[in-house]
């Protein structure tokens, strides 16, 4: 009976998120246009400037577009994770977060369900993007398209948990815009999304160091290897650990007795 309750609540939260996403068509298009611009414009321009040597998981020389695709999948999820936490800040102001929080279920579960819902939406976007990339000629092995699913689940949860954590600290939307600039851009640029690690090392040691420990890099590598049917164990463990840490901190942030809600004072 109890498990049934959890299951119904989870599917309720997920379907709400999917409905909202489908009704907000501009959001769907924006979420797709962003990585596509990177793929069609940025990557095409960079192709000439940047040759990628043979590097695992790739077995041949590859085009820059091929290299950047997993990074763009990560980008979709990064934006989505931040955006769904943006919607939580907005939700909380609108009070619908309060409705969620008075549901007779543990808060940790409710936040987790919210994360699953956001991740689900980001995976929908990721597959549509992969479909378009396929038509453009970026064709990973078919098995890779299956293997990338669990990788996207984990990376989506990790990035969503990060967003959730940030949302528990941020009081107002204005501050959130700042976090977008201070979180999304640094995370994306200082990662392996755009250049492989060894290439970064050639130019800057400290950037190499940051990129290596940036959880976003590890999420991208997890996706990259999965897309070619391989498991990058280090990336898996790193991403998983980052998820657990972010999630625990987020639950703490939403805990009524210890949380940041108190410090915010009256809503």
């Amino acid at each position: 009976m109890r498990i049934l309750h959890y299951w119904r609540a989870l599917s309720g939260i997920v379907s709400r998120e999917v409905w909202r996403f489908l009704y907000q068509r501009e959001r769907f298009i924006a979420a797709l246009v962003r990585p596509l611009v990177w793929l069609f414009v940025f990557a095409a321009g960079f192709r000439a400037a940047l040759g990628i040597a043979i590097t695992p998981p790739y077995e041949t020389y590859i085009l820059y577009e091929v290299y950047i695709t997993p990074g763009l999948l990560g980008m979709i999820q990064l934006f989505n994770g931040m955006q769904s936490s943006l919607s939580m800040v907005y939700d909380r102001e609108m009070g619908s977060m309060r409705i969620l929080m008075v549901a007779p279920l543990p808060r940790g579960f409710l936040l987790m369900a919210k994360l699953v819902a956001g991740t689900f939406v980001s995976i929908l976007q990721a597959y549509v993007f992969l479909g378009i990339a396929w038509l453009y000629g970026i064709q990973p092995p078919l098995a890779g398209l299956l293997w990338v699913f669990p990788a996207l689940v984990l990376s989506g949860m990790m990035l969503g948990a990060l967003g959730l954590l940030l949302s528990s600290f941020i009081k107002q939307l204005e501050n959130f815009a700042g976090v977008m600039n201070f979180v999304i851009f640094p995370m994306f640029f200082m990662s392996t999304a755009l250049y492989p690690l060894w290439k970064i090392k050639e130019s800057s040691e400290w950037l190499y160091w940051i990129a290596q420990y940036n959880p976003f890099s590890q999420a991208v590598e997890l996706i990259r290897f999965a897309l070619y049917g391989q498991l990058n164990q280090y990336a898996l463990i790193y991403t998983g650990a980052a998820f657990v840490i972010f999630m625990l901190l987020a639950i703490l942030g939403y805990n009524p007795s210890k949380g940041m809600m108190m410090r915010k004072g009256r809503g």
Partner: peptide, 16 residues
């Protein structure tokens, strides 16, 4: 953005 029904079903789901 959601219908009355969708809003209410969401709440019903939260209550199992």
């Amino acid at each position: 953005d959601l219908t009355v029904l969708q809003n209410l079903h969401y709440h019903a789901a939260l209550h199992g």
